[in-house]
Every structure is written in structure tokens, then in C-alpha cells.
């Protein structure tokens, strides 16, 4: 892979890798580290990718792996307030920021499938392959995640 090709991929998929990593580890600093690690792995990768989509899936898969590795390692220690981080994101409204907090409060096992399904538009089958899960597991997790988000949003409306 040439430096120019790599720069193109880094610019096009840097945000995707970062978001997957953020969903995995719930911490902006760790997510940035994972993003850089994953991109550097891509640069060194000798695989002949079939297509742009193959590159994207490879990046997501490696980001999920790196996120899991970080979570299981002793290095998963850095914790910054999510509210603090949300304050640095350019959300359009307080509701958007609140939705972010609600989604990030979900357990990790729900966050990543939710992101891949709703944001990246992957099918349940594709999400299952990317997360190395059974399709039925993905389906259940998506359903439970939806229920939890709806419940949290309803509670928030009632409280306000």
C-alpha cells in the first residue's frame, strides 16, 4: 500500500474506526489510541484487498479486536467523564448530547452491534460476522438495546 493510498483510507475511515473504538472502550483517549494502532496495522497489512468495502470491514474487525484486547488488559484504566467528553462534541442540541450519554451508558456488548447496525447500515448477518457473534445473539442484543434506549428516553421526558 502506498503512502497516498493509506492517507486516503485514513481520511475516509478514521472516523469510523474511532467511533467503533469509542463504542468498545467508552473513552476518547483510548479510542484515539486504538484508531492509530488500527490504521498503522492497515499500512503494514500485506493482504490484497478486493474492494474499498473489504478495507472498511477489515478496519472495523481489527478495531473491535483491539477494543476487546484493551478491555481485557490492565491498560484499560483511563476513565474520563463521558459528560465531559460530550461537552467537547459539536452536538446540535442538548437532546442529541443526552442520547449520546444514554447510548454510551449501555453495556459494551450492545453498543458495538447497535452502531454497526444503525449507523453503518450493516445487516444483522454482517454485524454478526464483524463482531464474531451468532446472528440470533445480535438480534437479541439489538432488541434489548432498543428497549433500554426507549425506556431511558421516556424516563428522561417524564423527569423533565
Amino acid at each position: 500500500m502506498t503512502a497516498e493510498e493509506f492517507a486516503g483510507y485514513a481520511k475516509r475511515y478514521g472516523d469510523t474506526v474511532y467511533r467503533v473504538a469509542l463504542n468498545c472502550c467508552k473513552n476518547a483517549a483510548d479510542a484515539e489510541d486504538i484508531m492509530q494502532t488500527v490504521l498503522l496495522k492497515l499500512y503494514r497489512e500485506k493482504t490484497e484487498f478486493d474492494s474499498e468495502e473489504h478495507v472498511k470491514r477489515w478496519l472495523i474487525r481489527v478495531a473491535v479486536n483491539e477494543g476487546r484486547k484493551l478491555r481485557s488488559s490492565g491498560w484499560f484504566k483511563r476513565r474520563a467523564s463521558l459528560e465531559e467528553y460530550a461537552g467537547t462534541v459539536d452536538f446540535e442540541s442538548p437532546e442529541e448530547s443526552e442520547l449520546f450519554i444514554i447510548v454510551m451508558a449501555l453495556p459494551e456488548k450492545y453498543r458495538v452491534p447497535l452502531y454497526l447496525y444503525y449507523y453503518e447500515d450493516y445487516t444483522i448477518k454482517e454485524v454478526a460476522a464483524l463482531c464474531k457473534l451468532k446472528e440470533s445473539t445480535v438480534q437479541t442484543r439489538l432488541q434489548r438495546a432498543r428497549e433500554r434506549v426507549k425506556k431511558a428516553l421516556t424516563k428522561q421526558e417524564e423527569d423533565s
Binding site: A3, G14, M35
Partner: peptide, 28 residues
């Protein structure tokens, strides 16, 4: 929810400096 979720996450972006840092590493 789907639309709100998409809109919300589209605001979450990696620091352009961090991406540039990686690109610079490979260029050098």
C-alpha cells in the same frame, strides 16, 4: 430513533490531528 441515532453519531469524530499524525508517520 434510527434517524436521531445516526445524526447524533455523525457529530462524533476523531481528532483530525490524530489522523494526520498517523499519516505523517507513514510518509516519513
Amino acid at each position: 430513533m434510527e434517524e436521531k441515532y445516526k445524526k447524533m453519531f455523525s457529530r462524533v469524530k476523531a481528532s483530525p490531528e490524530k489522523i494526520q499524525e498517523v499519516i505523517a508517520m507513514t510518509e516519513s
